[in-house]
Amino acid sequence: MTSLLTHSNPISYFPNSSPTLSKSPFFTHTKTLKPFKHKSLTVNSILQYNRKPELAGDTPRVVVITSGKGGVGKTTTTANIGLSLARLGFSVVAIDADVGLRNLDLLLGLESRVNYTVVEVLNGDCRLDQALVRDKRFSNFELLCISKPRSKLPIGFGGKALVWLVDALKDREEGCPDFILIDCPAGIDAGFITAITPANEAVLVTTPDITALRDADRVIGLLECDGIRDIKMMVNRVRTDMIKGEDMMSVLDVQEMLGLALLGVIPEDSEVIRSTNRGFPLVLNKPPTLAGLAFEQAAWRLVEQDSMKAVMVEEEPKKRGFFSFFGG
């Protein structure tokens, strides 16, 4: 139940009031397909990529990944989107703003390398560059934890500390990062307020159940009150079989309830748990998994400030050819 693309004009989300499939083919991305003719991208292709999404918006793009309800997959989304972006060649700094219950380092397999956090930076125990943990798999991906599990964050400065961090990251010698992803804690407590302060866009992660949707609606309301207008939604842990049996809300139902543009739809996948246990994000799996592909597609859309134009609603029996009996 993963997402599909997309529209030709990323600025106007809905060029037609009733977008039709014929008018917006799913895998034709005019913005990204155009540069195929250019020589520069041909060189890029030889170097590393077949093609690369075009970065929209000003850098650094500070994106907060939030949900309201806990356990819906914020940290998993941050890890997978972050590494997908890094894999696409963008420089990414992921900030684990979950003060009391940080887990992003575990998902990325970097837990043994976190020596300093933002608390130490604020106190002057280390510099910011010492607190940033560079991933060995993709050197353009860095992790910054806000505090150690047992320490208390002095939030007397409010969200200013994160604003300073973003400013400091902008002025780095290595250059300004393309993306700063902030993994927001659950709830709407002090941690949430701190996490959303520097953000100028948000990704709301939710699951298709009413408890998560109620919290999500509240959080969207708070984000909008705070002035964050660019909010997109990721529906996680979707099961097409349950949707078919009408035991689960469909993605379109969720969208109707929240009224947000869709960044991605992630199917329920046992590989998610496996990758979490391994500290090896799903998007790096070879061969790619269904959820991993969905995360990669979502990252692609995030880069281009794009949204989904069609969703996969149910599984159909695969049509088999004449020689399928013989393995064809």
Partner: peptide
């Protein structure tokens, strides 16, 4: 453009119907 095959499974596609007006509401 009515179906997509991902990881060996074929899914039926449905267009997103949310409009800008609905979003504003």
């Amino acid at each position: 453009n009515s179906t997509v095959e991902m990881c060996g499974k074929v899914y039926r596609l449905a267009p997103v119907t949310l409009t800008r007006e609905q979003q504003n509401v």
